[in-house]
Amino acid sequence: MSHLYDALRAMRTTLVTAFRKPTTVEFPAVIRPRGERYRVSFALPDDEHGELACIGCIACERICPSQVIKMRSTGKIESPVTGKKRQYVDEFVLDLSACIGCELCIQVCNSDAIRMTREPEEPSYSREGLVLDLVRLRANARDKTLSWGRGTELLERQEPPKAEKGGGRGGRPAAGRPDDSNKEAPAKAAVAPPAPAPAAAPAAVAEVK
């Protein structure tokens, strides 16, 4: 009898669900709101002078764990806009089919020249369709919303909070996250007792931040 009861309970569940609003949304027509930090594809934006910001320094090519970035650039030439000498990138290829989305390329870029976009690429029937070249990357920068992360901004966040004037030794290399320096600060204070007031300052500043 208990089996019959279980069966009837299962049938009640399906019946109730059948009259509820379906969870599914029809994707291409309806797109659910994406997370604030959602980011998928890449873009090569222009700098403030309207030139391509990328200088072809291959920092991103070298750090890419799955080695999906390949670029080629000429030597330094005079910029037609500003008149200063700078380097330009001639070819830039990013293979999205193997990209793991680690965002390391954005983090190492000193000129904020590669950014991630908040809108995905169109689906493709071939692997070639997933390869982003310079044209598509520049078009992405024009047409799509860029995510919040920029190389220089991320770099600033990684630096430990600077001590205020005369604050101990300072000038530590920019390694470790702000959290780390937060923990280290009291230890540092213990090591250097002669100057308690300035040494305590970094910790206080970190907490306020």
């Binding site: 399906t14 019946l15 669900t17 059948a18 009259f19 509820r20 379906p22 969870t23 599914t24 029809e26």
Partner: peptide, 8 residues
């Protein structure tokens, strides 16, 4: 079947 499984 779709509606019973909250699908369309």
């Amino acid at each position: 079947a779709g509606r019973m499984q909250s699908r369309l």
